[in-house]
Amino acid sequence: MDMIIEYKINAPVTTEQFLRVLETSTLGERRPVHDRARIEGMITNSNLVVTAWAGDELVGIARSMTDFYYACYLSDLAVSRDYQAVGIGKELQVLTKKQLQPGCKIILIAAPSASTYYEYLGYKSNPRCWVLEP
Rank of each mutant, 00 (worst) to 15 (best):
residue 108 L to I: 00
residue 109 I to W: 04
residue 127 P to Q: 03
residue 132 L to M: 14
residue 98 K to S: 11
residue 107 I to E: 09
residue 97 K to W: 03
residue 104 C to A: 10
residue 111 A to C: 06
residue 117 Y to I: 09
residue 103 G to F: 03
residue 107 I to M: 11
residue 90 K to Y: 00
residue 93 Q to N: 11
residue 102 P to F: 05
residue 109 I to S: 14
residue 94 V to I: 14
residue 102 P to D: 07
residue 113 S to I: 14
residue 107 I to V: 04
residue 98 K to T: 06
residue 93 Q to M: 15
residue 126 N to W: 13
residue 123 Y to C: 03
residue 131 V to H: 07
residue 113 S to F: 14
residue 131 V to E: 10
residue 125 S to T: 13
residue 107 I to W: 01
residue 94 V to N: 12
residue 90 K to M: 02
residue 112 P to L: 10
residue 109 I to P: 10
residue 100 L to D: 03
residue 109 I to E: 14
residue 90 K to R: 12
residue 106 I to W: 00
residue 94 V to P: 04
residue 132 L to E: 15
residue 119 E to R: 11
residue 102 P to V: 06
residue 105 K to W: 10
residue 101 Q to T: 06
residue 114 A to L: 10
residue 132 L to T: 13
residue 111 A to P: 01
residue 99 Q to H: 10
residue 116 T to P: 01
residue 119 E to L: 11
residue 119 E to H: 08
residue 127 P to N: 02
residue 99 Q to S: 12
residue 123 Y to F: 10
residue 107 I to L: 13
residue 115 S to R: 13
residue 91 E to V: 10
residue 121 L to H: 01
residue 113 S to P: 05
residue 99 Q to D: 04
residue 118 Y to F: 05
residue 121 L to G: 07
residue 115 S to Q: 15
residue 132 L to Y: 15
residue 88 I to S: 00
residue 98 K to D: 09
residue 131 V to M: 11
residue 130 W to C: 10
residue 122 G to M: 01
residue 127 P to V: 00
residue 127 P to E: 09
residue 91 E to T: 12
residue 91 E to L: 05
residue 105 K to R: 13
residue 122 G to V: 02
residue 90 K to G: 09
residue 124 K to W: 03
residue 125 S to D: 13
residue 102 P to H: 05
residue 100 L to V: 01
residue 104 C to D: 06
residue 112 P to G: 06
residue 114 A to P: 02
residue 130 W to P: 07
residue 126 N to F: 12
residue 129 C to K: 14
residue 102 P to Y: 06
residue 126 N to T: 04
residue 105 K to F: 08
residue 123 Y to I: 04
residue 131 V to T: 12
residue 131 V to L: 10
residue 121 L to D: 00
residue 116 T to S: 12
residue 129 C to Y: 15
residue 121 L to Y: 09
residue 123 Y to P: 09
residue 124 K to Y: 12
residue 114 A to M: 08
residue 121 L to Q: 06
residue 128 R to C: 11
residue 104 C to Y: 03
residue 99 Q to W: 07
residue 106 I to E: 00
residue 118 Y to W: 01
residue 114 A to R: 04
residue 105 K to P: 02
residue 90 K to C: 04
residue 104 C to P: 12
residue 88 I to C: 07
residue 112 P to E: 11
residue 91 E to R: 14
residue 118 Y to T: 02
residue 107 I to G: 03
residue 126 N to R: 07
residue 125 S to P: 07
residue 117 Y to A: 02
residue 129 C to A: 15
residue 111 A to D: 15
residue 93 Q to D: 05
residue 133 E to M: 12
residue 101 Q to R: 14
residue 98 K to W: 06
residue 95 L to M: 06
residue 133 E to G: 08
residue 89 G to V: 00
residue 110 A to Y: 01
residue 98 K to L: 10
residue 126 N to D: 15
residue 133 E to D: 14
residue 122 G to Q: 01
residue 108 L to H: 04
residue 102 P to T: 06
residue 98 K to C: 07
